[in-house]
Design a protein around this nucleic acid. Structure first.
Lengths: 150, 150
DNA sequence: CTATACTTATTTGCATACAATTAATTCAAA
DNA sequence: TTTGAATTAATTGTATGCAAATAAGTATAG
């Protein structure tokens, strides 16, 4: 009864032997949980994490935002235009260096912050992980982010 | 010197206090590392993990594949049509239940398997995590996947 | 100074993700 | 048995992600 065993020739290609796959799947499942709470605010998840940066430091260049979020300008340009269209940020070129685009939170964007306070609370309630496990997961994810070549 | 402290009113909205964000960022960073190795095979990452399922069990319905990959038919239909266009799978309706679409690996798809064997090896070389940390991360990610409500 | 290299953001094209709707088929209750 | 509910994919529309090419501004070597 030689069933396929886990260390056969192709075991490295089994979905269950990948680290990338649960990472990819869990990321999407978690992000999906934000939607019911972000929809009423008029934000997508990507817009939400961008707003987090503006709530923390009021203004930011596209390049700096991209470094913080691990996203390039090809992704961020439409996201920031959408946030501007909703009135949550304004965009303008730096006078010091015309290449640099500065994005700054508006008053409406600031007001959104209080409503957004409920979001982490609500999403946290959907994810049943022990505190110490969440902390260890957090640590390992940042370690992974730092452990990727280049 | 009362700088902003980490437990101020809005600390729950700080990017660095989110579990979701390193999950989201790490997922994209890791998936990105596959591209140089998958491009020569003519596969995207999503197509690659779908092929993993077909390499393991030859055939699969769209519904079953969706359950394994945490993806819905809206995402899978174009992915599977693309794999079919490249000749790696064939698609046909089940005769038992005409609602069900069966996807089955072709001979060309099988042959791709040997080339794909190099992929996990190469990507693994880009990610410098200790074995025990990778194992713990793996465990926590699957726990998280199971710990999401609904 | 000036031509060239570099930096920053935008644009373009392609492939997802996913919610919502639709279409086809099967199931199941009255 | 017949009709309404449920199941399964496909379709539609919106918003990313990202690579590659482009455009505009800045720095720098000679």
């Amino acid at each position: 009864m030689a069933e396929q065993i886990s260390d056969c020739k192709y075991s490295a290609l089994r979905l269950e032997n990948q680290l990338c796959f649960p990472l990819y799947a869990a990321s999407r499942e978690v992000v999906k949980r934000y939607r019911p709470y972000l929809d009423p605010l008029g934000l997508t998840y990507t817009q939400y994490i961008a707003m987090m940066v503006f709530w923390e430091q009021r203004k930011c260049s596209v390049k700096e935002l991209g470094e913080k979020l691990y996203l390039d300008s090809g992704t961020l340009t439409p996201v920031l235009k959408s946030l501007e269209a909703k009135g949550f940020v304004r965009r303008y070129r730096s006078t010091e260096d015309e290449r640099v685009l500065i994005v700054e939170v508006t008053e409406a964007g600031e007001q959104l912050r209080d409503l957004a306070l409920e979001v982490p609370k609500n999403v946290g309630g959907c994810i049943h992980l022990e505190d110490d496990e969440a902390a260890e997961l957090y640590r390992l994810l940042y370690k992974l982010l730092g452990a990727i070549e280049e």
